[in-house]
Structures are given as C-alpha cells and as structure tokens.
Amino acid sequence: MGDALDDALLAAGLLLVAAAATAAALCRDPARQAVLLSLLGLGLALLFTVLQAPDVGLSQLAVGSAVTPLMLLLTVRKVRRRKRHE
C-alpha cells in the first residue's frame, strides 16, 4: 500500500507541475504569469520533496516564493511606466 501511495503522490506532483507550466506558458499577461510561475514553483518543490530531494525543493521555495515574483513584477512596473509615458 505504501508503494501505491508513493506513486499517487509522484503522479500528483508531476501532473501539477505539467499543468502549472502549461498554464504559465499559455498566459499572455506577465503579471498574471508571475502568479502562475509561483504556483509552478510550489509544484516543483512538492515534486522534489516527493522524490526525496528536499535540498533542491528548499532552493526552489527560497527563490520562487518571493524573490522571483518581486523581480518580475518590478520589471513589469518599470516597462509599463515607460510605455504609459510614450
């Protein structure tokens, strides 16, 4: 039974990552894409943990939770500000 559960968790993690990555790739608005990317990061962290690689999962969480969205959204703001002026 333990093995079946491991497989179920692994399948759920893989599906989550695939779905989040597809959704992020299909999203055209960078701000909303940033939200989807952080969901993708959470999915990857889950997948890495299920695959017994918590160190990698922790790296993903550290970078993907706040720093990446912050950099993305700051860039979006800068670009929009410049566009508004032109």
Partner: peptide
C-alpha cells in the same frame, strides 16, 4: 494535493 493544490492551480489560471 489533489483536493487542494489542484483547485488552487485552477483558480490561479
């Protein structure tokens, strides 16, 4: 994961 994170992804998309 199935009942919570899945629907969250749906909501975020």
């Amino acid at each position: 994961v199935v009942g919570g994170l899945g629907p969250s992804l749906w909501g975020a998309a």
